[in-house]
Amino acid sequence: MLKVWNRYRHNLLAVSGLAFILLLIVIAIFARQIAPHNPYTMSTAARLTGPSSSHWFGTDQFGRDILSRIIYGSRISLQVGIIAVGFSFIVGTVMGVIAGYSGGWVDSLISRITDVLFALPDILLALVIMAILGPSLNNLMLAIGIVYTPIFSRIARGAVLNIRDSLYIEAAYSMGVKKIKILWHHILPNILSPLIVQVTLSFAFAILSEAALSFLGLGVSPDTPSWGIMLSSAKDWMELSWWTAVFPGIAITLAVFSFNSVGDGLRDVLDPRTGTGN
């Protein structure tokens, strides 16, 4: 673990990405203490005022403080990220491991389902699911989770296939170790690294999808402080007051970029083929 960190810390981009994510988590946890204003409080007097000393990032069309809404919005983004990606990670990995380990018709069935889901564009699939389920935060997370399940399933299956025929698996079996234990002790730890990388990358996609779906009106309710909603409502006022769109946009960009660079950095240190030594 220490070795991995020692290699990781040489990647400046990945380290700054990690730092930003940690900052984001702190902000999300302490949003109430950090935010200068209540994100829901409207004020007709202070509608669409530009950045100033009392409202650093300005206010929106209802006079709500944009900085505070961005701070509270990090909660939604992280929540969507954690729950949606957690869903797809767990479900996808289980599906992939079952497919790869059991083989035969089970593998064929799971692989075909994965292929079908893969064939549809991500956002279209999410839209269809949201249209069926109806807009709500829970449904949003479920939809994003389903969309990113196949990628985990495919990665897990590939990794399992790769090591299923390893000699040490056969060795453990020949020594009477039960199959379920082999799965737990030998297979899972060895397929984890590509999955961890995918988790960070999917995190970025999930935040983006939440923003996109909320922007399209299929996400959370319009008064919720979500980065996507903010961007969506800003589109009508953008020409008048640039700050309503720019600051949420920057927040989304930074978060996505951070998760991506952490993912890339992890891939480099965890994959022995691209890593700098064993």
Binding site: L167, Y168, A172, M175, H186
Partner: peptide
């Protein structure tokens, strides 16, 4: 190939315990 027959992520100790644990 004794190297391939041992899980690279497990210490020798754990690998040696494994068959005995299984029974």
């Amino acid at each position: 190939d004794p190297y391939a027959a041992l899980n690279p992520r497990m210490t020798i100790q754990d690998s040696l315990h494994e068959p005995l644990k299984a029974y």
